[in-house]
Design a protein around this nucleic acid. Structure first.
Length: 495
RNA sequence: GGGUCGGUAGCUCAAUCGGUAGAGCAGUGGCCUUUUAAGCCAUUGGUUCCGGGUUCGAGUCCCGGCCGGCCUACCA
């Protein structure tokens, strides 16, 4: 195509090193010409890095033969010998290669390896002067050539755009990121373990839905050619999991992706992972115990600690029982007015303005109050807090509190200044459910899910239900600053 | 969507008031058989995100666009 690319076709041409792709391509071509296609190679691994390192006892200087493999992430050549670091799924292991041990020809080829290449190394373990367990190579093999240079070894990759668009590079060079995604996987595994231990069954429900309900969010729309009809991507798991309760699966959960057609922010990605769990014959109090135990067990098993230090230094303490606070009490405390809930909307607006909060005057009365919660209170709830007795207008899928008909049987768990998990005593009266759906349909661009109401009319056991934003859980458990740091491939504008 | 800050070598970053675009790492050539961001010598590499404009002269100033960070808006 251009002059630089022409270089790659000729080994005889002198490469000045200015085009690293061309240099590497030429090395690869040279190998292929001599009958060694590295992409055709494989390698028998006897140990992964961490296992191999642990083979050598504290007081041992040398050990048995191992065979390891990985990507070269450090290469220190010192004339007739070299040290290199191989990165595999468990971490890094050092290898030591000497010309007098692998032979002159092999060593000449070895010197042409590049950072980023995958190789296998076989030989005995030994301990270096500084005590690092190292594989002394009797044999090595290039098993895959890397044609492009890795990001800088010390600073890693810091350009956000590139970190998200080329996550694989971030994972190779940034250990913090690598560890965070291992933690995420472990957290989700421990969530499943916990639910199984509690006798829940994991199910999978449709992502493509003709009516998307269970939350008030705008859906993504798509088209199904075979039936020539439009579908929505799901915005919640709720309505299908409740159908499972109707069907007699009285403890069910699902961990899955939901999609909401909303903006991006530090806390929002349009596709994110939810856990929803429904337990028949329980209620929101039961879900409170379940949710607390779940997070405690997951933190204990996945991280080994119930204390999580925030980047700012404050320690989130997950141990013991957690604080409970009534929504109304938190509001009254924040605004400093005992009869806040009796004030007309105009007075509330005056007060919020005096507090320096911008509130849209078109909002409903309860929405003004909820703005106070979201803008003033939520970010202060760093230690785990169950917010209870939430106004009924905010949750159309829950039961009314017997002792206070203005509120519903629900909690909203806040940790790290964010909503993590709401839970309800689920509404199972089909008539009441229809009524609150109809109200919602009137207010928003929601459609009525008649199929779900039909299911309810067949009878759903009383149940507690809980939904948890897994990404937000991972944010605070792994000390991430941004939801995008917890999602391998976050949604980005296509280039 | 709005505000704001940014985009310079493969990567991490400099570049004074508008005056020859630099460094470290990586690469290339050489020395070096226990290194730890290995070291030493030499050296290649630039559409300064893109397109216009002002100017004798633009990485720098102006306008438009693209992409992103942060804040904000939408958000059970």
């Amino acid at each position: 195509m251009n002059d630089k690319d022409k270089k790659t076709t000729s080994d005889n041409e002198v490469l000045d090193g200015s085009d690293q792709f061309a240099v590497r391509q030429a090395k690869l071509n040279g190998l292929c010409d001599s009958g060694n296609d590295p992409f055709a190679a494989n390698w028998e691994q006897s140990h992964v890095s961490k296992e191999a390192i642990e083979l050598l006892g504290e007081d041992e200087e040398t050990g048995s033969d191992v065979s390891v493999a990985g990507r070269i992430v450090a290469f220190r050549l010192m004339g007739k010998a070299a040290f290199l670091k191989l990165l595999d799924r468990q971490g890094k292991i050092q290898a030591y290669v000497r010309r007098d041990e692998i032979g002159d020809d092999e060593y000449a080829a070895f010197k042409k390896l590049d950072l980023g290449d995958f190789i296998g190394v076989r030989g005995p373990l030994f301990r270096t002067k500084t005590g690092e367990v190292t594989v002394r190579a009797k044999e090595y093999r290039l098993v895959s050539k890397s044609l492009r240079p890795l990001p800088e070894k010390w600073h890693g990759l810091s350009d956000n755009d590139q970190i998200y668009r080329q996550r694989y590079l971030d994972l190779v060079v940034n250990e913090e990121s690598r560890e965070r995604f291992k933690s995420r996987s472990r957290i989700i595994r421990e969530i499943r373990e916990f639910m199984w231990e509690r006798d829940f069954i994991e199910v999978e429900t449709p992502m493509l839905q003709s009516v998307s309900g269970g939350a008030a969010a705008r859906p993504f729309r798509t088209h199904f050619n075979a039936l020539d009809c439009d579908f929505n991507l799901r915005i919640a798991l709720e309505l299908h999991l409740k159908r499972m309760l109707v069907g007699g699966f009285d403890r069910v959960f699902e961990v899955g992706r939901v999609f909401r057609n909303e903006g991006l922010s530090r806390r929002h990605n349009p596709e994110f992972t939810m856990l929803e769990a429904y337990q028949a014959y329980s209620d929101y109090r039961g879900m409170m115990e379940l949710t607390r135990s779940l997070i405690q067990q997951v933190a204990e098993r996945a991280l080994g600690s119930l204390q999580v230090e925030r980047p700012e230094g404050e320690v989130i303490d997950l141990s013991g029982n957690w604080r409970e606070a009534k929504y109304k009490d938190l509001i009254i405390d924040a605004v400093g007015i005992d009869d806040w809930f009796e004030l007309p909307k105009a007075e509330k607006l005056k007060k919020t303005k005096a507090m320096g909060i911008e509130v849209d005057p078109e909002l409903e009365d309860f929405e003004v109050t909820n703005d106070v919660f979201e803008k003033v209170i939520e970010h202060t709830l760093v230690q785990p807090t169950f917010v209870t007795h939430i106004p009924k207008e905010l949750c159309p899928l829950a039961k009314i509190t017997q002792s206070d008909p203005s509120t519903i049987d629900v909690f909203e768990l806040c940790i790290n200044g964010q909503e993590i998990a709401p839970a309800y005593s689920e509404q199972n009266n089909p008539a009441v459910q229809r009524e609150s759906f109809l109200k919602q349909v009137g207010e928003e661009t929601q459609e009525l899910d008649e199929d779900f109401l039909l299911a309810l009319e067949h009878g759903m056991p009383p149940a507690g239900g809980m939904g948890m934003g897994i990404d937000r859980l991972v944010i605070f458990l792994t000390k991430a600053a941004n939801i995008r740091d917890t999602i391998l491939f976050p949604t980005l504008r296509p280039l």
